[in-house]
């Protein structure tokens, strides 16, 4: 199993890594990116991934490449999927996000999920609401991943 995790928050990343270790019997091969650009380059150059776990809000560039302080992109995850679609890249994606409502656009996670299902049906597999204070997200993610595995 080869997994790309595109996530900029170390704590959340750590929890996802713990989860994956538990979830898979055989330790998966994991590549990590912390920005939209590095994520895109990773999957552009290597489309051999079985799964992408994608954060929704992250910086455009990696911290080490942005000495101004990070310029964040609230919908970086959406942009990455758009780029994948435009470029004909079709690796299964699961969005793992920390918020239920995206305020300015007033879009709920459920609505966003619906939008992604319509727009990226070739590779979008679902989204999981991550909360550090609870472990419910692990069950949700496990369910989505089981669904992915069945399809694989």
């Amino acid at each position: 199993m080869k997994i790309a995790i595109i996530e900029d928050q170390p704590e959340k990343l750590q929890e996802i890594l713990y989860f994956l270790e538990e979830f898979y019997e055989v330790k998966p091969c994991i590549k990590i990116c912390e920005s939209l650009k590095s994520g895109l380059i990773l999957i552009k150059n290597d489309q051999d991934f079985d799964l992408i776990l994608l954060d929704m809000s992250m910086p455009v560039l990696d911290a080490k490449h942005d000495s101004h302080g990070l310029k964040p992109e609230n919908f970086a995850g959406r942009e990455l999927m758009k780029q994948m679609k435009i470029r004909g890249i079709s690796v299964p994606v699961v969005v793992v996000t920390q918020y239920a409502v995206f305020e300015k656009d007033n879009i709920t996670l459920a609505e966003l999920n619906e939008e992604f299902e319509k727009s990226y049906q070739d590779f979008y597999k679902g989204c999981v609401y991550f909360q550090s204070s609870s472990d419910d997200w692990m069950q949700e993610l496990a369910e989505v991943l089981r669904g992915c595995n069945e399809q694989l």
């Binding site: 928050q9 809000s57 964040p72 920390q98 918020y99």
Partner: peptide, 15 residues
């Protein structure tokens, strides 16, 4: 506001 919401309120701060 949009940034506070997506980056701080719902992300970094609770964690």
């Amino acid at each position: 506001n949009s940034h506070l919401s997506t980056r701080i309120r719902h992300g970094y701060l609770p964690t």
